[in-house]
Every structure is written in C-alpha cells, then in structure tokens.
Amino acid sequence: MNKFIVGAVASTVSFAFAAEAMATEWNVSVWGKRRAFTEHVEKIAELVSEKTNGEFTMNVSYGGLSKNRENLDGISIGAFEMAQFCAGYHRDKNRVITVLELPFLGVENLEQEVAVSKAVYAHPAATDEMAQWNAKLLMTSPMPQYNLVGTGEPRDELAEFDGMRVRATGGLGQAFEAVGGVPTSVTATEAFQAMESGVVDTVAFAQHAHLSFGTINEADWWTANLNPGTVNCPVVVNIDAYESLSDAEREALDSSVDEALDHYLANYAELLERWDSVLEEKGVQKVEIAPEVIEEFRAKAATPIRDAWIADMEGQGLPGQELYDLVVKTLEEAKAGGS
C-alpha cells in the first residue's frame, strides 16, 4: 500500500513538472511606461494568454531588459522573445523600413499608417533584412504625424526653423535639417531632459509621447498641422522562439495581431479627442502653420530626401524605388477604400 501511495504521489509530482514545462513564457522588452504606444503589446499579451488558457504568457518589461536602442540586438541573441524598437534608432540595421519614415508621404490617419506598414513589412526585402537579426516583424506601432512642441516664441515661418535645435530622428531629422534645423536623435526617454536643459529648443513627437515623456510640460506652443511625417516602430519576435511555439500557440499569437491593433487604434482615438483640452489645461498655445509655409517645407524636404533615399538604397543593393512605389500604391488604395 505504501508503495502504491508513494508511486501515486511521484506520478502527480511528475505530471505537475511536465505541465509546468509545457507552459510557454516570453519576455517582452519595451521602454518608458505603459502608454498609448504600448497598448497593442499589452493587448496581445492579454489575448494570447486568454486563447491558450494561460499556457502562453508574456511578461512586458518597461526598460528592465534592455535599453531602447539595443532591443533589436537583444532579439538577435535571444535575450528576450519580443521587443519594440524604432527604425530611426539604428537606421543601418533596418534600412528597408525607413521608407516609412520619409517626410511628407501623405499619410493622413493611423489606419493608413497600418496599411503601408503592413505592406512594407510583408516585402521580401524587409523580412530578409530582419532575419539577419533573427527577428520577425510582427506588427507596427502606428503613430500620427509628428508635430513640434517648443519654448519661447512660436516658430511658424520656415526661416525660424534655421538654427532650431530639434529632437527629431530618421527622415524627420533630415527634413528639419533641409530647412536649416539642427536635429539631434536623443531617445524618447531623454527628450524631456534635453528640452529642460536647453539642449534642444523643440521636440518632434506624436501626442502620446509629448504626454508620456513630459515634453508638453515644458512647452509654450504646439504646431497643430505641420505634419512632416512620423517614425516607424515595429514589434518583432525572435525567429527561433516563434518557430519553437506549438501550432496552437503560434495561431494564438498570429490571430491576435489585428485584434491588438484594433484596440490600439481605438485607444489612440480617445487620446486625440481630448488633446485640445490637454493643451488648454497646460497653457500650451496651439499654432496653425500657414499652408504656403507647409508647401515650402515640403518642396525643400520631400523630393530631395526621397530621391536621396532611393539612390542610397539602390546603391546598397536594396529595391528602394520598388519600396517607395509600394508605399505610394498602398496609400492610394487605402484612401480609395475610405481609410
């Protein structure tokens, strides 16, 4: 009888260990704090856990696993299984997706941003380049067109951008440089300190980031309609980790992407609806840039930077023209479809 009881206990313990071993747990590296920019990451973690009855879980870490500029490196060595990064942080490592950061592409809303990102992420050149980092592009982090907050008198003429020290990365930085600005690519988490200490006069962010990183608290004014472009920030997964998932786990993850993005878009829409009241509450002047000033900015920045980007990509053996044309075509289709 004792042998039977001992055997039964041993079997129970063995089963418990086996069940624990079967569970999948991923670490996810993001930065800052939970905000509109990370809501799809939080949502996909929630959905995956629900769909697998808690057998596949994700631990979302805000800066505890890696610095934001090093998330792609962390993915490449398997330090964690999922991460978010922005293309402008290391343009040489993710050249293909920087097409989405070209200034004045004409993207009008987040739905269109999702459409063009999905198209580029699915292009073989993008998947091949990310595979070099053992990374698979999972979903974008769609952001509105960036706009400036600044200190002192509003800068609403192009001549006033000359010498302006601006926090702007990627194609946005190039755009401001084309009209005499002096861009710096400090990370999002460093932007407030750079503004507070006077290292920069202005900061280019989407609305959620001005709130999350406190730059709105230093601002005297905000450009409501400059809309020079945005940055592209994918969420990627480690390829080895993705391929190690069971079929059911992989299905739970893949099927949750669109749901997570829908949640993100709905959440961001609420933020945009209350943005004007945020400006009023914080005493920030809303500045409307004259159409002729925006057109002058576009003429000096859009075509030259686009042509230089295409030539640079083609020179590196990448299909620059094809990628740019893909963005234009996808955007036209999205607009025709009512997005």
Rank of each mutant, 00 (worst) to 15 (best):
A122W: 15
P144K: 04
T187I: 04
V30T: 08
K43E: 13
V60K: 04
A204L: 04
K300H: 04
E50T: 07
G88V: 05
Q285V: 03
E295Q: 15
I289D: 08
I239W: 07
A125T: 07
E270M: 12
D254C: 05
F297V: 02
G214S: 14
T24Y: 01
E70R: 10
S246H: 06
V287D: 12
R155N: 14
Y146S: 02
A36P: 08
K3V: 12
N53P: 13
G283E: 06
A224Y: 04
D247F: 14
A83I: 09
L137G: 04
S76N: 09
Y242E: 07
V327H: 02
V30Q: 03
L279N: 01
D312W: 06
T184N: 13
L102D: 06
R165Y: 08
V13I: 15
R298F: 04
M22G: 12
A8C: 13
A260L: 07
E129W: 11
N225L: 12
T12K: 07
R274M: 13
T184P: 04
E314C: 07
G171P: 12
D162K: 13
L253C: 01
L211A: 05
E249V: 05
T57L: 06
A175S: 13
A224E: 07
G214R: 02
V13W: 07
Q145F: 02
P154V: 06
A125R: 04
E314A: 12
A79V: 02
C86R: 01
E113L: 01
T215G: 11
A83Q: 10
K329Q: 12
E50H: 11
E81G: 12
P234I: 03
G106T: 07
A115Y: 01
V231E: 03
N225F: 08
D247E: 15
Y121A: 09
L148C: 05
A224D: 11
G198M: 11
L272V: 11
A204P: 00
V257D: 07
D92Y: 10
E111S: 00
S244P: 08
R35F: 05
A290R: 14
A248D: 15
T52N: 13
E50G: 11
A204E: 03
V48K: 01
R167T: 02
S66Q: 06
K136C: 00
T169I: 04
V179I: 12
A16M: 13
M195L: 15
T184K: 13
E270G: 13
V328W: 02
P142A: 06
E111C: 00
D156A: 15
E25N: 15
V13F: 13
A21I: 06
L265E: 10
A8D: 11
G7Q: 10
A194F: 02
L253F: 14
L211D: 00
E190N: 10
A299R: 14
V186A: 11
T187L: 01
H263V: 08
G74L: 02
G337V: 03
L323S: 09
A83F: 09
Y121W: 11
V179M: 06
F205H: 12
N134K: 03
A290Y: 12
D254T: 05
D262F: 07
F176L: 06
V200C: 00
G337W: 03
E332L: 00
L272N: 10
D73I: 09
E101W: 02
T303P: 05
L279Q: 01
A131L: 11
G163D: 04
